[in-house]
Amino acid sequence: MGLLSSVFKKNDQQKPADVAKAETSKKEVKPVVDKITVGHVHMSGCTGCLVSLADNYGGLLTILDKYADLVYGLTLADVRHIPKMDVALVEGSVCINDKLSVEEIKQTREKAAIVVAVGGCASYGNITRFCRGGQQNQPQHEAFLPIGDLIKVDVYIPGCAPTPQMIRNVCIMAYLLLKGSPEQKALATNYLKPLMMAAQKGTSACFCDLMTEVIDQGLCMGCGSCAAACPVRAITHEFGKPQGTRDLCIKCGACYNQCPRSWFSFDVVSEFESISELIDTVMK
């Protein structure tokens, strides 16, 4: 106590008067009034999604500064229980053998207006689909489900890891949806629509989706997007069509969702130039 107070006292004494003044006057403005509240809920995932969020670097600070308050996050916010929030970014699948995980995902649904499944595990199970249990120190934890199998999910951000830019875009669009002008709300709605449709579509993903939903449906035109998107390089093109090494597939959903013939919104993509500029502007 003595040491602490002496340190603080010393600091106080050293602080020039004008700096102290500036700080007081700053407190009176309310730059955060229109922010949305966002939480990062960590289920069974590798923290890669959180790293991706952080990999927006300065952009993450801009988001936290201008658009979103981080009200919950295992490593980033000192909050024990899941609070009420506008947007929950959920990483990882749910271990249904773990009572706390099940309880937390249910609470997330209750507390959050919008639940976003961030990454392959939350959306589709991804690598946790392959768990057979036996790992230390909870060998009995063997059953993992994408969060959509337990709660209603509003938005998917597929991929392993989901890209920093996708997480950034969804954060910006969520902000515009909740706080923007009618025009911005319309844009955000259009932008989020396919990701909401993905959330409604289901909780399983595989390279096979390209076969069953694109090639078999007569829609593939061999652009190559799937191969570029695959994080494990499982996809090559033979005579212009995707071939998957299915044993390599981790079921992250990147290939199918990157494919322009899985879903394609002319409303959004035709405006790529203005939307990219908008994103650049708001991130400044």
Partner: peptide, 24 residues
């Protein structure tokens, strides 16, 4: 360089970079 569908793929990839980290 690409066909119209490939340009659609490129622009979708810029706005929805699901598996295209730092590419757009």
């Amino acid at each position: 360089v690409g066909t119209p569908c490939q340009m659609q793929a490129v622009r979708k990839g810029q706005l929805y970079p699901i598996g295209l980290r730092d590419v757009g």
